[in-house]
């Protein structure tokens, strides 16, 4: 971004004893407002944010806003099978007469929950490992990074299929399995960031002050990679949802009657192209959700990157 602010210095806060020139420098509120203004300039990021927030709200309030909440469970209506979208069922009904829209809303809950669990576990394992590997380097660093390399060679979907073959197919099992290898990219990211942050003067200053390793790792280094990690989490969220739905689509994850987007697309396949709505709407839901997270993530990356300069 080549706006003029990279050419000039920012207006600075006044020194004591000055004639009260330019006001009181930047207060917190002023800063936040300025940051928001900058974020809003990125149209796509704004769209991403709105969609993401919208999706979260829909998921949270699903039981309240869905027109036929019982259709998300075991209820079936054989009298209403495969009805096209109309006034009562905005997205039509599926092969056992359930309202597609309601099932979509509940499916959002499942996808989001899954996303939170997978990323939460991956973050909790990967970041501390990467931090230690980067900070201590040497033997510790090598061991951690080589294990990471091994884990990196495992493809998500193949693992999920293997887990479902070994145990019974269930969404929980497969996603837990995926969570336990998802940490690898967090580890590598934290490792790289730690290596470069270690060289910064303020880290050296902390060392010369005599701060403990723990302080330096968690109070000096880790907070300074928070923006990078936030961008990664946002982008990964979309990908995690995609992987989850793919696993279910392949039959290795959720099983009916769970209103999960992946199996909705899978079961609707058989009725294409006549009853297109059964597969299409869940597919669109996946598409828009992943797109929103991606746009938001890109927007955040631009936002933080400019500030870093």
């Amino acid at each position: 971004m080549t706006d003029g602010s990279t050419v000039l210095t920012k207006p600075a806060a006044p020194e004591p004893g000055s004639d009260g020139l330019s006001g009181d420098g930047m207060t917190r509120v002023h800063e936040i407002r300025r940051g928001l203004r900058r974020f809003m300039k990125n149209r796509l990021a704004l769209i991403g944010l709105i969609f993401t927030l919208g999706m979260v709200l829909l998921a949270v309030f699903a039981p309240v806003i869905s027109p036929y909440p019982e259709d998300a469970g075991l209820k079936v209506h054989f009298d209403k099978q495969l009805m096209p979208p109309d006034r009562d069922h905005w997205f039509g009904t599926d092969e056992v007469g359930r309202d597609v829209l309601s099932r979509l809303l509940f499916g959002a809950r499942i996808s989001l929950l899954l996303c939170v669990i997978v990323l939460g576990i991956a973050f909790a394992i990967g970041v501390p490992l990467g931090l230690c590997a980067g900070y201590f380097e040497g033997a510790v660093g090598q061991v951690i990074m080589r294990i990471t390399d091994v884990v990196s060679s495992i493809p998500f979907l193949v693992l999920a299929l293997a887990v479902s073959a070994a145990l019974s197919p269930s969404l929980q099992n497969s996603m837990l399995a995926i969570a336990f290898i998802w940490w690898r990219s967090f580890c590598r990211l934290a490792y790289g960031e730690t290596l470069s942050l270690k060289q910064e003067d303020f880290v050296m200053a902390s060392r010369s002050i005599g701060a403990s390793h723990r302080h330096i790792m968690f109070r000096e280094i880790l907070p300074n990679m928070s923006s990078t990690l936030l961008v990664k989490i946002t982008l990964d969220a979309g990908y995690a949802i995609l992987v989850g739905t793919a696993v279910s689509f392949l039959g290795a994850g959720a099983s009916p009657p769970t209103p999960e987007w992946g199996i909705m697309v899978a079961s609707g396949r058989h009725y294409l192209p006549d009853s297109w709505w059964v597969s299409l709407f869940p597919g669109l839901a996946i598409f828009f959700t992943v797109l929103s997270f991606n746009l938001l993530g890109d927007g955040l990356r631009d936002f933080f990157h400019v500030e870093v300069e």
Binding site: D201, F202, S206, R219
Partner: peptide
């Protein structure tokens, strides 16, 4: 470098 010597998050 005074800018680099202080932790920007503190």
């Amino acid at each position: 470098d005074p800018s680099a010597a202080l932790n920007p998050r503190q």
